[in-house]
């Protein structure tokens, strides 16, 4: 038996909304330690990795007697989650050898209980081993700032060059009709931590990435006030949104490499 009771349905709604356009079918791997999801987009350029820890406060109850994989169509899941109120408590439930995933939405005042079942799918996806490495550069910034940068620069071109150096980070785009550049200076003196821009630098990095994917990742902006970008030359960028009281959502994007 698997049963996970999440205090805020809005968290799961935001996660699925941010994934469903790039990652349409995905396996939720459930174990006693929590729920993980790893999936590649259809072109195998981007990868997402979600981790929701069972021992964090976001789960009121969590039970998973044996490891199970729940193959779900995320577009369908998003439709089901739209039936939940933002303040509803949501329970996910499945048997040990499941064909069905059950969603139970309890309203805050206890007057409304909704139950939806969806059929599970057999999804043949290969898990990739993501090495736990140290990156040359980690930039932390307000998540809405990163969203704005991606949105602004995507008006002019398809790829952004991210240039991390000791003063800060530069984002540049060069298209056929024009070019643009946004310079963010390190700023760790502002009062609120979530408004700070910080750059941890071991080595400078200059790398290009497809804006289409970065813009898609920023659909997760409402999950977190901050986002971190981890870069090493000639390796995928990691865009991480912490999820309070649950864990994190990470996106990996393969770089564009000079031919």
């Amino acid at each position: 038996m698997f049963e996970a009771k999440m205090l805020q349905s809005s968290v799961l709604k935001k996660i699925i909304e941010s994934l469903k356009d790039l990652f349409s079918d995905a396996n939720f791997d459930c174990s006693s330690s929590g729920i993980t999801l790893q999936d590649m987009d259809s072109s195998h350029v981007a990868l997402c990795y979600l981790k929701l820890r069972s021992d964090e406060e976001g789960f009121e109850d969590y039970r998973c007697d044996r490891n199970i994989t729940l193959g779900v169509n995320l577009v369908l899941m998003s439709k089901i989650l739209k039936c939940a109120g933002n303040d509803d408590v949501i329970t996910l439930r499945a048997e040990d050898e499941p064909n069905i995933l059950t969603f139970i939405f309890d309203s805050k005042n206890g007057e409304r209980v909704s139950k939806y079942d969806i059929k599970l799918m057999e999804i043949d996806s290969e898990l990739l081993g993501i090495p736990d490495t140290e990156y040359s550069c980690v930039v932390k910034m307000p998540s809405h700032e990163f969203q704005r940068i991606c949105s602004n620069l995507s008006q002019l071109g398809d790829s952004v060059t991210v240039d991390c150096h000791k003063e800060g980070v530069d984002f540049k785009v060069a298209g056929e009709q024009g070019s643009g550049a946004i310079k963010l200076k390190q700023n760790t003196t502002v009062d609120k931590e979530e408004d700070q821009v910080s750059v941890e630098l071991n080595e400078a990095v200059t790398q290009s990435f497809a804006l289409k994917f970065l813009c898609a990742f920023t659909k997760a902006t409402s999950l977190s006030d901050t986002v971190s970008l981890s870069l090493t030359q000639d390796t995928p960028i990691v865009v991480e949104y912490p999820i309070a009281q649950h864990g994190y959502l990470r996106f990996y994007l393969a770089p564009k490499i000079e031919e």
Binding site: M40, L128, A254, K256
Partner: peptide, 14 residues
């Protein structure tokens, strides 16, 4: 021109 890399080039299949 830049060539788009593939994520499977960087992370091995388990």
């Amino acid at each position: 021109t830049n060539k788009q890399g593939n994520i499977t080039e960087f992370f091995r299949k388990q």
